[in-house]
Amino acid sequence: MAHNTSHLNVQQSFESFFQGWLLRQQNFLEQLLSISLTPDSPLKIHHQNALIDQVLSHYHQYFLQKSRLADADVFLLFSPTWLSSYERALLWIADYKPSLLLRLVDGAVQGLTPDQDQDLHQLKEDTRREERILTGIMAAVQESLAGPSILQVARQVGRLLDGEIGELDSAMEVMKRAMTEVLEKADQLRVTTAKRVVEILSPSQTVQFLAAAAEFQLRVRRWGMERDSRGRQEHR
């Protein structure tokens, strides 16, 4: 019972953080769109750089909270109840694929130079290679979860003896560590990819990129919540 209460508290705490984080995300999107329309001036450059730093700090807070949740209960991040079914369908190792960021650059960032194009092309290749490696690792983790030894013990949950309970707990602890490790690597790839994009782009292009990323997330969120709401109404 205590474990269930702790599990619920951790989940509710992150959900509360995430709702507030999304509101701040909307606010940052409005600021990014506004500054992108402002005429060039020394004051704009100052505000633009400060805003970029704030948005990157905003994302840092998100990944920090995710890491804390993973330490408490990593399984929640792989079945996030705070997301719509549409959002969950787009996830890769508990979040969006980092290569998605690069597609956003292609569609939203203007005025890329040949050198920037080349650097982004190399980044795409590096990112997709790392994604393939992590996808393979995640598949191996999932296969081990469905392995006969864990399933055999799990099917006996209603009639486990003390030793078997310990065996199941040990198996789940191993699984938790494996999932936490692959999530940490996936999040590191997401962060590294975003940092490299920002290093390649100019500040004004970075504003375009960050606006596109925020707009994409918020639009998917809105669509997903609306679809879930319609689905609930149709089943009443």
Rank of each mutant, 00 (worst) to 15 (best):
Met1Asp: 06
Asn4Trp: 05
Ser6Thr: 11
Asn9Ile: 05
Ser13Lys: 13
Ser13Trp: 05
Phe14His: 08
Ser16His: 14
Phe18Ala: 13
Phe18Glu: 10
Gln19Lys: 12
Gly20Asp: 07
Arg24Asn: 10
Gln26Leu: 07
Asn27Arg: 13
Phe28Leu: 01
Gln31Trp: 00
Leu33Tyr: 03
Ile35Gln: 06
Thr38Gly: 01
Pro39Ile: 05
His46Asp: 08
His46Tyr: 05
His47Asp: 14
His47Pro: 00
His47Asn: 14
Gln48Trp: 00
Asp53Ala: 13
Gln54Tyr: 03
Ser57Cys: 04
His58Val: 08
Leu64Ile: 07
Leu64Lys: 10
Gln65Pro: 01
Lys66Arg: 15
Lys66Val: 03
Ser67Met: 07
Phe75Cys: 04
Leu77Phe: 02
Thr81Pro: 00
Trp82Gly: 05
Leu83Gln: 13
Ser85Met: 09
Arg88Gln: 14
Arg88Lys: 15
Arg88Pro: 04
Ala89Ile: 00
Leu91Lys: 06
Ile93Asp: 06
Ala94Leu: 05
Ala94Asn: 10
Lys97Ile: 00
Lys97Tyr: 02
Ser99Gly: 10
Leu100Met: 13
Arg103Ile: 08
Asp106Val: 12
Asp106Thr: 13
Ala108Arg: 14
Gly111Leu: 09
Gly111Ser: 09
Gln116Pro: 06
Asp117Tyr: 03
Asp119Gln: 15
Leu123Phe: 02
Thr127Lys: 02
Arg129Gln: 15
Glu130Asp: 06
Glu130Trp: 02
Arg132His: 07
Arg132Met: 09
Ile133Glu: 10
Leu134Asn: 09
Ile137Leu: 10
Ala139Leu: 13
Ala139Pro: 02
Gln142His: 11
Leu145Ala: 14
Ala146Ile: 00
Ala146Asp: 11
Ser149Leu: 08
Gln156Leu: 15
Gly158Cys: 06
Gly158Lys: 10
Leu160Ala: 07
Ile165Tyr: 02
Gly166Trp: 03
Glu173Cys: 03
Val174His: 07
Met175Arg: 11
Lys176Asp: 10
Lys176Cys: 07
Arg177His: 08
Thr180His: 12
Glu181Leu: 10
Leu183Met: 12
Glu184Ala: 15
Lys185Cys: 05
Asp187Tyr: 03
Leu189Gly: 04
Val191Pro: 00
Thr192Met: 07
Arg196Ile: 00
Glu199Trp: 01
Glu199Asp: 14
Ile200Cys: 14
Pro203Ser: 13
Ser204Glu: 14
Gln205Leu: 04
Gln208Cys: 04
Phe209Glu: 01
Phe209Ile: 04
Ala213Asn: 11
Phe216Tyr: 12
Gln217Trp: 01
Arg219Ile: 00
Arg221Ala: 06
Arg221Pro: 00
Arg222His: 08
Gly224Ser: 04
Met225Trp: 07
Met225Glu: 15
Glu226Lys: 08
Glu226Pro: 02
Ser229Tyr: 04
Ser229Val: 03
Ser229Gln: 11
Glu234Val: 06
